[in-house]
């Protein structure tokens, strides 16, 4: 997200990949385990307009620090030393722009391998670089994504080239979209002053928790105890927490109040945004006795409003 804000990106919906891409690169992403349907529906064996033979019409490259289960579905595996992605993309951008560095190896990869890869990207009908948490959650973080997007722009001088993040976590894209149209920002939004402010590094959840700033937490459809760094998650054990979740999780274990709710897309219909930002209507398939998320949330908000207005009345009386 921050990388997108910094420079933008060449992207497309996944159907474009299915119909036209003849070069697929998975970088720091292991779809065989993280996105098991991706390969068959969009990027590997899927047949499309210019790929009538599916897998045979595509060249698939996996770049990772280890031989992941995705490698066996690829034509080419390039092993990179951990934490060297930014350096390797910088060199690939140099190569793309006609500068060959005076070295044999970059980030554990022979220079000639990178020259060949860049050449393959330049010649592609449509090249697609999918990147995952091996890029976004390692040394360099959003700078790695920025380097990838810049590489995609460099490649666009030569060929159709897309750079697409392998977003995970059900409907994280939907959450980002709604935040964006309502506040202007996709995450790390602080309403403390009565209007939305954005500053990742200050207002993102980990930073807030590390500073022990929140004195109460409402947690909706999230698993912070499992997913956040220990030091940040620890603060949640010390403050009142209200957790809305249909399941028992590590977070419900520490909750002061648990409100069981319907599972969106399972027991209540709704809309979820796919990783390529296409909204999908979700049907309800199972019965559930619990309410939808918005019912307890609006009940809480209305109750707070009522208390606030009563407080105002009392204050007004005092002042008079």
């Amino acid at each position: 997200m921050v990388a997108l804000q910094l420079g933008g990106a060449p992207a497309a919906t996944l159907g474009e990949v299915k119909n036209r891409a003849d070069l697929i690169i998975f970088w720091g992403s292991n779809p065989a385990e993280s996105h098991p349907r991706h390969f068959t529906r969009y990027s590997g064996t899927a047949k499309g307009r210019m790929n009538p033979n599916g897998r045979k019409d595509r060249h698939v490259v996996v770049v990772d620090i280890r031989k992941t289960p995705s490698v066996k579905y690829s034509d080419e595996f390039i092993q990179i030393k951990p934490g060297n992605d930014y350096e390797v993309f910088t060199v690939m951008r140099m190569i793309a722009n006609g500068h060959i560095p005076d070295t044999d190896m970059v980030g554990g990869i022979p220079l000639q391998t990178l020259i060949d890869l860049v050449e393959r990207c330049k010649k592609a009908r449509m090249g697609v670089l999918f990147f995952g948490q091996g890029i976004t959650e390692t040394k360099g973080k959003h700078q790695n994504s920025t380097a990838i997007y810049q590489f995609g722009k460099d490649m666009t001088k030569h060929s159709k080239f897309l750079t697409l993040p392998m977003r995970g976590h059900y409907n994280v894209v939907g959450s980002g979209n709604v935040m964006c149209w309502q506040t202007g920002y996709p995450f790390a939004v602080n309403f403390g002053k009565g209007y939305p402010r954005f500053n990742p590094g200050e207002f993102s959840v980990v930073d807030l928790l590390l500073r022990r700033e929140p004195d109460v937490a409402v947690i909706v459809a999230a698993e912070p105890i499992d997913h956040l760094p220990y030091a940040a998650a620890k603060h949640l054990e010390n403050i009142p927490t209200i957790v809305l979740d249909p399941r028992k999780t590590l977070t419900t274990k520490i909750a002061k109040v648990i409100i069981p709710v319907k599972h969106a897309g399972v027991s209540v219909e709704g809309t979820a945004y796919r990783m390529d930002h296409i909204p999908i209507k979700m049907q309800a398939v199972l019965e559930s006795p619990w309410p939808k998320d918005d019912i307890p949330l609006s009940t809480i908000i209305n109750r707070i409003k009522k208390i606030r207005s009563e407080e105002k009345k009392t204050d007004g009386g005092k002042a008079a």
Binding site: L4, L6, G7, G8, A9, P10, A11, A12, T13, L14, G15, E16, K18, N19, K153, T156, L162, H277
Partner: peptide
């Protein structure tokens, strides 16, 4: 900055 989003 440049964002491109082709739609299938």
């Amino acid at each position: 900055k440049w964002y491109n989003g082709d739609v299938e």
